[in-house]
Design a protein around this nucleic acid. Structure first.
Length: 857
RNA sequence: GCAAGCGUGGCGGAAUUGGCAGACGCGCGGGAUUUAGAUUCCCGUGGGGCAACCCGUGGGGGUUCGAUUCCCCCCGCUUGCACCA
């Protein structure tokens, strides 16, 4: 009877289901008897394409750890759910003429089926679906909390409008003027939209990163995104030089933000962003036409064009001047699109001597450049006319700042600015309000109505959920309202308790909303009274380990942290931060094959000979490369196929054996075969393939000392490496152990049983089967983790390398407790060593305990 | 351009308070079992050399008795950010 995962695996999956082996209790009395461990996967968006082998990488890692922790006596919270709202389902709905809920259910069913086949120990009774009214009721409830705290508001703002998607997007979703997911171009439009005041939390979002066990890179990305900078805001008075004075230009002033107030004496001109409100006001009549043309051209450019064309700096003079408060000189005011309307005050003081962008602009438009900072020592590498000196140094040509270091000068200038009333110190963040509404159907409706007399009213909690209405089409209405505008008045029109009539908000929330708090819903997923129980929250939070892709480093993780902090301020959660430890698994890539014309071939259409790949159809040799899995490249590996051919245990094992979890690595089917062989070899330790009975090598006797030691070393390494997320080395240790067993004459039953338990987090199906065949009681996954005996993990004798002048020449075997002198003597006694010493006396002998002896002659 | 990370056999990778480079797996070679193939088991497998030996962790330099590991310079790849004043 061969190892046959296709019969073993369903058998044990059913057994686990029947025993409710992974159900986590929900009553606190029981929970409080054990320590907790909350291990969370980033839940997937259930796409129509189904799972590929990249998805289960992180899921396998968390599952192995969850199973270990359970065996070590923890209550483990290990749930799975679906980030089910989103655009692809809505688009499929349009194509197929089917409701997105039906498409979503179809996809979720497929995802669940695929995930279940891997034998993960999720507590399926806690499954959540962000698109279910039972769930989004609470998403709306949290929105009301944000609204009550004044953190959500409706405003007419410039937004990122994506014509291809027919919706607006958040700043975080746009890069280089394109939607990060699809590359569709985004343009700027002014629209009335819901915004969330995430910058209110900017400082806390930076500060609280401190205590988190997250990859340093992700923390850094968040810090950069939030983008804190310290400096000052300084007012510049406008001098109107032209005759025809705009009435309000008379005493106009504008405010600039600078991080280098120490260079104020070097500000030789100012720049306003094209969108700056003062542009119209101060422009001289003679410059009106040029400025208007420039401004409208800038406004029409997409963000992409604006950043792309930024290589050549452009701008126009307004004809107006401002007074530099430090020098009291008149300096020209320009309009240029290198100044962003969305950052700071939308206006800058330009210091071309010490800022590269200003320098570039000044050179392009021949504006004066003066030096106000000099190096701490020596001369400028290049005169300021040729290159901006952006480093810190000593102030010069700067009146009362002269000879101060940059840091001192900044401080002195800010004090001065505040004392004389030019402005004030200021901390500025790049993080801007989060654009929180979308013109889509398949998302959470806002619990908001607009009364006919123009008031915005938040619905009371007892009216939740506001469910999605039926609509005839998932398209905007003829008059440009979002799809919810198609709903019948039964849904769209509401009578308020005070008798006023109101219209429902027609925007929906972005996909991020549901994922901002799903980790909290898992705590108490079936609670119909509350989003979660406060005591359960205190028990389980924070998440001990959160595993997912690095692509969420800024978006999801920043949004979720923000919501969590709001909930914390509302007294609804007990921790400042939701995710204590974060781990990013590396992407799994795959080989793809292309012919000379660039056409891709799937795995079924190629064959390998002598390490080269050929197209089956034409026999043409193909070029192979490692790429991201993608449908268009025909290199997607489907876990269903892997399970069919090798079983779920082999798939699980290979996912982790490939290499370090955090690393990007290519899928190699031959590697799956390798781990599958390991499992079959393990099977044969226990089962006689001929008869199907227990192997006759299995004996009820004590283990040979060496084998016993190997077992305990394995228990130790598997435990430590698993807890440290070094799954690949834990597996290689088990492979070595099985290899040793394969060569042993007798295999004690107790030893095999113990090993089976160590294997069970990794290959749970095979482990259950072997555990049962070896006479184990109950389920292997519910046994306590076998403790190793530390004394059996050390060897009696050690093999030391012996070096002469740092080169390895021989090895010696010494007792484990041999002292340095004994090691030295043994090394010097070696004939080979003596040969290499060439009769010279040893100048120095270095003994490294348990490692080597180095003789220097 | 700026920042971070990485670079080890034919391939995935192992080894870090500086101490035997290449664990484990794939692939490959040889042998045993088999009518044969598949499977399985055993042996070998960084490169060069008949050998003694020599060389070897992207390249160059340095510190050290000893460097894949630490320092400096360079090359290559990956990721993030990119007019944020």
């Amino acid at each position: 009877m061969r190892y046959d995962p296709s019969t073993i695996e369903p058998k044990w999956q059913n057994a686990w289901d029947e025993a409710k082996a992974f159900k986590t209790p929900n009553d606190l009395v029981t929970l409080k008897t054990r320590p907790k461990f909350y291990v969370l996967d980033m839940f997937p968006y259930p796409s129509g394409a189904g799972l590929h082998v990249g998805h289960p990488e992180g899921y396998t890692a968390t599952d192995v750890l969850a199973r270990l922790k359970r065996m070590q006596g923890h209550w483990v919270l290990h749930p799975m759910g679906w980030d089910a709202f989103g655009l692809p389902a809505e688009r499929a709905a349009m194509r197929e003429g089917v409701h997105p809920a039906i498409i979503t259910k179809r996809n979720v069913d497929n995802f669940r089926r695929q995930i279940k086949r891997l034998g993960f120990s999720y507590d399926w009774e806690r499954e959540v679906d962000t698109s279910s009214p039972d769930y989004y009721r609470w998403t709306q409830w949290i929105f009301l909390k944000l609204y009550d705290k004044g953190l959500a508001y409706l405003a007419e703002v410039p937004v990122n409008w994506c014509p291809a998607l027919g919706t607006v997007l958040a700043n975080e979703e746009v890069k280089d003027g394109k939607y990060v997911e699809t590359g569709d171009v985004v343009e700027r439009r002014t629209m009335k939209q819901w915004m969330l005041k995430i910058p209110v939390y900017a400082q806390r979002l930076i500060d609280d990163l401190e205590g988190l066990d997250w990859p340093e890179g992700v923390k850094e990305m968040q810090r950069n995104w939030i983008g804190r900078s310290e400096g000052a805001e300084i007012d510049f008075r406008v001098v109107v030089a032209h005759d025809l004075k705009h009435p309000s230009a008379q005493d106009a002033k504008f405010r600039v933000f600078t991080t280098r107030p120490d260079t104020l004496f070097g500000a030789t001109y100012c720049v306003l962003a094209p969108e700056h409100p003062l542009v119209d006001v101060i422009t001289a009549p003679s410059h009106q036409a040029a400025v208007a043309a420039y401004v409208s051209a800038a406004k029409q450019k997409t963000d992409l064009a604006r950043t792309d064309l930024a290589k050549e700096k452009t701008g126009v003079f307004t004809g107006a001047y401002a007074v530099n408060p430090a020098t009291e000189q008149k300096i020209p005011i320009w309009v240029a699109d290198y100044v962003l309307s969305t950052y700071g005050t939308g206006a800058i003081m330009a210091v071309p001597g010490h800022d590269e962008r200003d320098h570039e602009f000044a050179r392009a438009l021949t504006l004066p450049i003066v030096q106000v900072v000099k190096p701490l020592e020596g001369d400028l590498p290049k005169p300021v006319e040729d290159a901006a000196f952006v480093e810190e140094g000593l102030a010069c040509n700067s009146g009362f700042l002269d000879a101060l270091t940059t840091a001192e000068a900044k401080k002195r200038m800010i004090d001065h600015v505040e004392n004389v009333g030019w402005g004030s110190r200021r901390v500025q963040y790049k993080l801007r309000d989060w654009l929180f509404s979308r013109q889509r159907y398949w998302g959470e409706p806002f619990p908001i109505v607009h009364t006919d007399d123009g008031e915005i009213v938040a619905l009371p909690e007892d009216q939740l959920p506001v469910t999605l209405p039926a609509v005839d089409e998932y398209k905007p209405t003829g008059d440009g309202k979002p799809p919810l505008g198609r709903a019948s008045p039964d849904w769209g029109r509401v009578r308020l308790p005070d008798g006023r009539m109101a219209t429902r908000e027609l925007n929906t929330m972005p996909q991020w909303a549901g994922s901002c708090w799903y980790y909290l819903r898992y705590l108490d997923a079936r609670n119909t009274e509350r989003a979660w129980d406060a005591e359960l929250e205190k028990y389980w939070m924070p998440v001990d380990l959160y595993v997912g892709g690095v692509e969420h480093a800024v978006l999801h993780l920043l949004y979720a942290r923000f919501w969590h902090k709001v909930l914390f301020d509302c007294g609804l959660v007990s921790t400042k931060e939701p995710f204590h430890k974060l781990f990013n698994q590396g992407m799994i890539l795959a080989y793809s094959f292309q012919d000379a014309k660039g056409k891709y071939y799937g795995y079924d259409d190629v064959e390998e000979r002598d390490g080269k790949t050929f197209a089956k159809s034409s026999g043409e040799e193909l070029k192979s490369q490692i790429e991201k899995m993608s449908k268009s490249k025909y290199n997607v590996v489907n876990p269903d196929d892997v399970i069919r051919d090798y079983g779920a245990d082999a798939l699980r094992l290979y996912e982790l054996f490939m290499g370090p979890l955090e690393q990007v690595k290519p899928w190699q089917m031959a590697g799956v075969e390798g781990v599958s062989r390991f499992l079959a070899r393990t099977w044969r330790l226990v089962v006689d393939e001929e008869s199907g009975a227990l192997s006759n090598r299995v004996a009820d006797e004590a283990a040979a000392p060496d084998l016993e030691k190997a077992l305990h070393k394995t228990l130790k390494k598997v435990k430590e490496d698993t807890a440290g997320l070094r799954f690949n080395t834990a597996i290689s240790q088990m492979m070595s152990f099985v290899n040793e067993c394969t060569q042993a004459k007798a295999l004690p039953r107790a030893l095999l049983k113990t090993f089976t338990l160590a294997l069970s987090p990794y290959a749970p199906h095979l482990a259950e089967e072997l555990w049962q065949r070896l006479g184990g009681q109950g389920l292997a996954c519910q046994q306590p983790w076998p403790a190793h005996d530390e004394t059996l993990c050390v060897d009696d004798t050690l093999t030391l390398g012996v070096q002469v002048n740092g080169k390895r020449r021989d090895e010696i075997t010494v007792a484990a407790n041999a002292d340095d002198d004994a090691c030295k003597a043994a090394a010097l006694a070696s004939a080979t060593v003596q040969k290499f010493m060439e009769g010279k006396p040893a100048k120095k002998v270095i003994v490294v305990k348990g490692r080597l002896v180095n003789i220097v002659v």
